[in-house]
Computed example of a mutant assay.
Amino acid sequence: MSSQKKIRVILLKNRTVPIDKYESECESKSFEPVFIPLIKHTHITQDFRNVLNSAPNYLNSINYIIITSQRTVESLNESIIPKLTKEQKATLFSKTVYTVGPATAAFIKRSGFTNVKGGEEAGNGSILADIIINDLTVGVETQSSNELLFLVGEIRRDIIPKKLSSKGIKVREVVTYKTEDLDDNFTRFVHAAKPNDDDEKFSNWVVVFSPQGTKGITQYLYTENHSSDSKKLRIASIGPTTKKYLDSNNITSDVVSPKPDPRSLLDAIELYEHHS
């Protein structure tokens, strides 16, 4: 790669506030981050409140919580935790929380939880389920518990509940947020991805985090992916699940992040550029 060439990274995600680790990591490498939100999130608090109201001692009866999304943490921080009593907050923060990926683990710790497991060691839901099974059936965490509380989005995969249920571990799912596609996400993406006079100076990357909200964008990426134009977009998948989704749409990922975290992703992009 020419030393004059800059790297623009189009991130198909909402910017996390107040700090987005992808933005920070891009800036540390002198990459230009561009955020294209594809979906909007709406917090749902009633399901959680219903659980507490139906069984006032419910928080005392569980030992473990599963959280796999930063959106769930945002919902807790902004809409659920502020409405809990001091005693309920203390009880909630004392629970062991299982999560996927280092970024979400760090977010959970900043919220006040002190015992967070998975994280760096759990790159996806299937691995996290294996960690939980090991802890609760053969590991040091073995103890009686009626069920695990799984805080989820309205749209979610069922890998974790199925795997845990197969081992006789009960899981109670409570919805904490819902997502909707933004009507103008495709237009905003094309505007960001469309070549302009300055693009001779840039190597343009698109990072796909999830299938949600990408229908029109995947069609655009397919066209770019099969173009002979040397300035076509490079495509990065945040992990094997996203790569599989792109593969199913005949889109080749130039890079697959070894781990679902900013440094692994951007190191992989940088390595690709170094050898191109």
Rank of each mutant, 00 (worst) to 15 (best):
K259N: 12
D261F: 13
K231E: 11
N250A: 07
R234S: 07
D229M: 06
P240Q: 12
K243D: 01
A236S: 09
V255Q: 07
K243I: 01
L233W: 00
P262G: 09
K259M: 12
Y245E: 07
P240T: 10
T242K: 01
S248N: 14
V255D: 05
S230W: 05
N250I: 01
P260D: 12
K244N: 13
P240H: 09
N249R: 14
N250H: 12
K244S: 08
K244I: 04
T242F: 03
S237V: 08
K244L: 11
I238N: 02
D261E: 15
S237N: 09
N250P: 00
D229E: 14
T252V: 15
V255G: 06
R234D: 04
I235F: 06
K231D: 14
I235A: 01
D247A: 10
Y245M: 07
D254K: 03
S237R: 10
A236P: 02
D229W: 09
V255Y: 09
K259H: 14
T242M: 03
V256S: 07
I238S: 05
I235N: 01
K259P: 06
I238A: 04
I251W: 03
D247V: 06
D261V: 15
D254L: 10
A236Y: 00
K232P: 01
Y245L: 05
T242N: 07
V256T: 15
P260T: 12
I235G: 00
N250W: 05
D247P: 05
T242Q: 02
Y245R: 08
S230E: 13
P240S: 12
V256R: 01
P240G: 08
T242A: 02
T252Y: 13
